[in-house]
């Protein structure tokens, strides 16, 4: 466990020192501010969806989960794998007394930590922004719905991250992985819309699965089905990604 823990700490420190985390958080905050400005504008013209303080964080999540967050996660995943291979810095970690499985797992854990920090920061700031504008509409149930929505979004984002990690271990160039990931994301997104009866097979159509968790009606069968599909994808891409990572010669 020592090597796994050391790799997590090191990867987080490297991410912090590269200032990428800060830049990404700033962009995320900018998304909230722009969203809030738009909501003000819409409220003044009579569109009332943003009037409740607890709806604003959910509307921010609906934007965050399908565009900025998958994009940021892709960049971080590429940086941790393809980036290190192409800059020849992967061998620094690989020549330490720690197995490749622990290194791979630690890097995936760091991606999860990054996604979680991003989600929680945006959740906190958007909730505060929503409350400042309309404090009277706050409710305990509303806050719980926000927390659940943000937390469960971690799963589909992580499955997508594992797809990017898989490609990062096939190609040497980070740029190639980035464009391939973006293309696959777009194709999957469009296919999910066109082939709507089969949309649950496309990971992009599960990015908004938090809606099932917070809708008034309990959708346990649907949540279970989507959870199992995502788990299956996650296990498959984790295993395939690790296989390539372990076999890779430097």
């Amino acid at each position: 466990m020592g090597g796994y823990k050391a790799t997590i700490i090191n990867e987080l420190e490297k991410m912090y020192k590269k200032k990428k985390m800060i830049v990404i958080l700033i962009i995320s905050i900018a998304v909230i501010l722009i969203g809030k400005l738009i909501s003000f504008g819409m409220s003044t013209v009579g569109v009332g969806v943003f009037k409740e303080s607890t709806i604003f964080p959910i509307s921010v999540l609906s934007v965050l989960s399908i565009t900025p967050l998958p994009l940021f996660t892709t960049l971080v995943a590429i940086d941790l794998f393809a980036g290190e291979f192409s800059h020849n810095t992967m061998k620094i970690t690989l020549t330490r007394p720690v197995s490749r499985f622990k290194i791979f797992s630690a890097k995936v854990t760091v991606i999860a930590i990054f996604v979680l920090i991003n989600l929680l920061s945006v959740m906190f700031l958007s909730t505060v922004a929503g409350l400042i504008c309309n404090f009277s509409s706050i409710s305990f149930i509303g806050i719980i719905r926000i927390v659940i929505s943000y937390i469960v979004t971690l799963l589909p984002i992580m499955v997508f991250a594992l797809v990017v990690v898989f490609f990062s271990n096939i190609f040497k160039s980070g740029t190639a992985v980035f464009f391939l990931s973006v293309m696959l994301y777009l194709i999957s997104f469009i296919m999910g819309k066109i082939l709507s009866p089969y949309s649950s097979l496309f990971i992009t159509s599960m990015l908004d699965w938090y809606i099932h968790w917070v809708s008034g009606v309990t959708l346990i069968p649907k949540i279970t089905r989507e959870f199992l599909i995502m788990l299956g994808y996650g296990i498959m891409f984790f295993t395939a990604g690790y296989y390539l990572f372990d076999k890779r010669d430097l």
């Binding site: 490297k14 020192k17 590269k18 810095t89 620094i92 020549t95």
Partner: peptide, 9 residues
């Protein structure tokens, strides 16, 4: 091995 690598940042 091959070259002495370090993290440049």
């Amino acid at each position: 091995i091959e070259t002495a690598e370090s993290y440049p940042y």
